[in-house]
Nucleic acid binder design. Sequence first.
DNA 1: GCAATAACGAACAAAATTGTGAGCCTTATT
DNA 2: AATAAGGCTCACAATTTTGTTCGTTATTGC
Lengths: 125, 125
Amino acid sequence: MRKENSTNSINEQFLFQVCELNSAIAMISGRWKSQIVYSISQGNNRFHLLRKELPNISEQVLGRQLKELETHAILVKQEIPETVPVGVEYILTNKGLDLIPILESLCNWGKTYAEGKEISVCSIS
Amino acid sequence: MRKENSTNSINEQFLFQVCELNSAIAMISGRWKSQIVYSISQGNNRFHLLRKELPNISEQVLGRQLKELETHAILVKQEIPETVPVGVEYILTNKGLDLIPILESLCNWGKTYAEGKEISVCSIS
DNA sequence: GCAATAACGAACAAAATTGTGAGCCTTATT
DNA sequence: AATAAGGCTCACAATTTTGTTCGTTATTGC
């Protein structure tokens, strides 16, 4: 899927080395990702619950995003024992949980300015 | 460039309405964007300074990202008076400045786990 | 027997992002 | 006269992300 030596991925690697900020953002950007993380933190930790929360997502896309979040160790998949067919729960790791307050501040930042807080420049430079 | 009625952009709109979190992330994701914002906050607020900081970026791409950040009111362009040819400074708005501490926490979050902090799940659920 | 639920995977297609090559304007310097 | 600095823009190509279609496993309900 990824070309190892495209300028695009070379640049991506370069940024990852400049600062972890860039890899952090790469982990949480992606169409549904941060919303999925947030929904799981709210208790929607099953495949079908997430589908209900995100009615427009297709199953393939949801599965793909979950797998990527798992790759980045933001969540883990756990089979629920004694269920047939076997049910699966998605659990945030401590890494994923640490992300929640940051997502909340991003959310508040967005809200503040969407609700009309004045945007200006501080001209004393 | 954007198709108004693609599923992709419908889904994007849907997420924007679910929570400002998603629009916030949309504003800062994009190959060089958060690094540019951070660099400007560190004083690299001219086109050519940013090029020095990001040696692999092309002028076209830098210009495009700056314009998008301007569209989202994260920064503004200001001509420096009395310069010939006219110089341009990029200044973070208060919206952009408010973003900096959030970017810093994201950066720390990334660093913490990249440096090997143990990742685990809290099994008391 | 047929549909539904839960949880995906593979292959492919559509759309979006990112990068490339070239060009433009003005002034100062060599 | 040619080149460089500073700051861009356009059209197009390459790459990546996102979405679609179909198929799978196993069990319960009608």
